[in-house]
Amino acid sequence: MIRFNQVYKRYPGGYEALKNLSFEIAEGEMVFLTGHSGAGKSTLLKLIAAIERPTTGSVLVKGQNIKSLKSAALPYLRRNLGLVFQDHKLLFDRSAFDNVMLPLQICGFDHRESAKRVRAALDKVGLLKREKANPIALSGGEQQRLCIARAIVNRPTILLADEPTGNLDSEYSNEIMSIFHSFHQVGVTLLIATHDESALQHFPGRALTLKHGELL
């Protein structure tokens, strides 16, 4: 599903964030990406979502090489991915419902069908009662769950999460990890970056550990 081949990522300015990464993630796997702050976890996820491109080596996502991907093909790659961001990237000018609606609007889904899907996604993360709320009125944990609802509403085959529990206390983190685990159970491929190693003990899944841009 995801394959890295001798991938190097050098940022403009010369800093080498990733060095000689080679690994593969199979369909339906749930993988934790761990490592210290600055190890290169976010960079790795950005390469998969083609937010950054590798300097050398190849990144294959569902068989497509990110490096040679045309910019016109980029949106269609991203529609297969669900992205959960540490800073949520929610839009505060619209309701929770409309935030989750956005990916479906972008794909041009039928309006009535979309509304059903949005409610299903909100229900999944336990926010159905807050659909009319502005995200700014939600707690940190609720905002993160809203971000997850937006990531899954399009039924992506791959879910990438960058420190989804980063700013949350352990009660909220477990809640969110359970949600991810339920996606794993229905066959979604998950890659979750976290510097909190405790999740590894509670949930099944392989760990990839980065140290100064190298895979341990």
């Binding site: 269609y76 790659l77 991203r78 839009l91 972008i106 794909c107």
Partner: peptide, 16 residues
């Protein structure tokens, strides 16, 4: 700007 960035991240085409 923010909305445009988010839209691009979740697969919006330039046309959209």
């Amino acid at each position: 700007r923010e909305e445009i960035e988010v839209a691009k991240l979740i697969g919006a085409t330039n046309g959209f």
